[in-house]
Design a protein around this nucleic acid. Structure first.
Length: 482
DNA sequence: TCCTCTAACACTTTTGAATCGC
DNA sequence: AGCGATTCAAAAGTGTTAGAGG
């Protein structure tokens, strides 16, 4: 039995340089508040229902921030990043690759309703993205996040220093993401273990809990359809054998808030050592099926994340930070929270040669998507574990060593193909250059053959202020959240 | 036939208005 | 009149399930 956080330490990783922790030096830190719950799901293979009218996430994204300037205004946003360019199918209790991904739907971001607010406001309490909804309706006009079913994504959080949502384009920003928050978008749950875990932890699904006030056995659904009861009984007979051992059901007492739940009963299930669905549950020899998603449980040893980018994102300036240890040894406080810190450095430099890191066990074949995220992880002395995640370094061409990085920008209402292959690039001198690639070349580092370099990149975003002519044509974030 | 998706359903929590008492 | 606590109904969120459609 292995606790998910008992990942093997990557002792080979050198210690990161000292990190400034003062406001002046802009050491922004983001902590995933309900990390235990996320990890419980992630160990099985998180699935998120998407519907035509939009569905909330569960677990929902709940983070806390520190290191902000107390009286500076910030806008906090979330978008969903494709984890890879693959489509998956659920086959015989495991996920398998089912082909190439469909063209990405319009990229949308969800702005936290408190935005903009001063740093003190954000740091006063945790940020909940409870009301963010996911949909598979590509024609959605309610600003919900549009995803493709049977594709994998992960949420990405942006902290932008800006006085209003309309000025985020010009503000310095930092981006955070958490490996345990990756998920597969589905229209119906595929893995019964996920269903059970959701029922056990989501208060709205309390009625489906066995032994609850309205257990399945008590519910009289049969009055609608006599066959349903029989089918339900069959399902119940089969379900227990598929359920993860030792899953702890939430006490029926009114621990109603999701936060309390996230900090509560997930510990038991975690200690049971659920195997990652992207790992041990499958045939290890069958790398094709799950390697793109491989997380190997708690082993987040890969430093960088690849950000597929058929849709555009705002450009980033990436700063080389240092080689850092495994995220599995990152910060994790007593509450099971996981934090990423993104220290802001004064001078942006360009990393020389970087590698996507499969940080979520996701990145392998990105096809036309070649954006990279860098994750900086700082191995702290136990038990304190620290992650440092930095935004994204993006190879613009095959000359990865040139340190080109950036995000292509997705315009208002732009269809993905309209911007496909267009890249914003920043060179060592800090100049952003918009690249248009008629035929985007897969980044050489995006192939499975390429070794992981375990590079750590300090990452922060700075919108380039000196090249606004180029930037003005690309909204920093998609329109739909406003 | 298989896979994916949709809509209706029963059940739950959340939300907000109305009411009451101090 | 103002405030806080309580009650209640409506709204919204949840997984289940049958059936449609490709």
């Amino acid at each position: 039995m292995q606790h998910i956080t008992d990942s093997k330490p990557n002792l080979s990783m050198p210690q990161p340089p000292p990190v400034a922790d003062s406001y002046q030096q802009g050491c922004i830190k983001m902590t995933l508040e309900n990390a235990d719950l996320w990890k419980a799901f992630h160990s099985i293979g998180t699935e998120m229902i998407i519907t035509k009218h939009g569905r909330r996430m569960f677990p929902h994204c709940n983070v806390s921030l520190s290191g902000l300037q107390p009286y500076a205004n910030y806008v906090v946003m979330v978008d969903m990043v494709p984890a890879d360019s693959l489509r998956y199918k659920w086959n015989k209790e495991q996920w398998e690759v089912a082909g190439k991904a469909e063209p990405q739907p319009p990229c949308r971001t969800y702005r936290h309703p408190d935005s903009p607010a001063i740093g003190n406001h954000w740091m006063k309490r945790s940020l909940s993205f409870l009301k963010m909804k996911l949909t598979n309706n590509t024609l959605d006009q309610r600003g919900q996040i549009i995803l493709h079913s049977m594709h994998r994504y992960y949420p990405r959080f942006h902290v932008i220093q800006a006085d209003s949502p309309y000025t985020v384009r010009w503000g310095p920003f930092q981006t955070f993401s958490f490996p345990e928050t990756s998920f597969t978008a589905v229209t119906a749950y595929q893995n019964p273990k996920i269903t059970k875990l959701k029922i056990d932890h989501n208060p709205f699904a309390k009625g489906f809990r066995e032994g609850g006030t309205h257990s399945h056995s008590k519910r009289c659904r049969s009055n609608r359809s006599p066959n349903r009861a029989a089918k339900r009984a069959t399902l119940d007979r089969n379900a227990p054998c598929k359920s993860p051992p030792g899953l702890q059901r939430m006490p029926s007492t009114s621990q109603s808030t999701e936060e309390r739940k996230s900090h509560g009963s997930t510990e038991e299930s975690l200690k049971e050592g659920h195997l990652s669905p992207w790992g041990a549950e499958r045939d290890p020899s069958d790398s094709l099926h799950t390697e793109p998603l491989e997380l190997h449980g708690p082993d987040y040893s890969c430093e960088e994340q690849m950000v597929p980018a058929s849709m555009a994102y705002q450009p980033y300036r990436s700063v080389e930070y240092d080689r850092l240890p495994s995220p599995s040894n990152g910060t994790e406080d007593g509450d099971g929270r996981r934090s990423y810190e993104s220290p802001v450095l004064d001078v942006a430099t360009v990393p020389h040669g970087h590698d996507q890191a499969n940080r979520f066990g996701l990145a392998r074949d990105t096809g036309h998507h070649q954006q990279h995220c860098s994750v900086i992880q700082n191995q702290m002395s136990a038990p304190c574990q620290e992650y440092r995640l930095t935004p994204v370094s993006v190879p613009m061409s095959s000359k990865a060593g040139s340190g080109i990085l950036g995000y292509s920008i997705y315009g208002h209402g732009c269809q993905p193909e309209q911007n496909a292959g267009q890249w914003a690039e920043v060179e060592a001198g800090g100049q952003y250059i918009v690249h248009t690639l008629a035929h985007p070349t897969p980044h050489p580092l995006a192939t499975a053959e390429h070794g992981t370099q375990q590079l750590g990149y300090q990452q922060r975003g700075y919108h380039h202020h000196g090249n606004t002519a180029d930037w003005s044509q690309y909204p920093l974030f998609s329109y739909s959240c406003w």
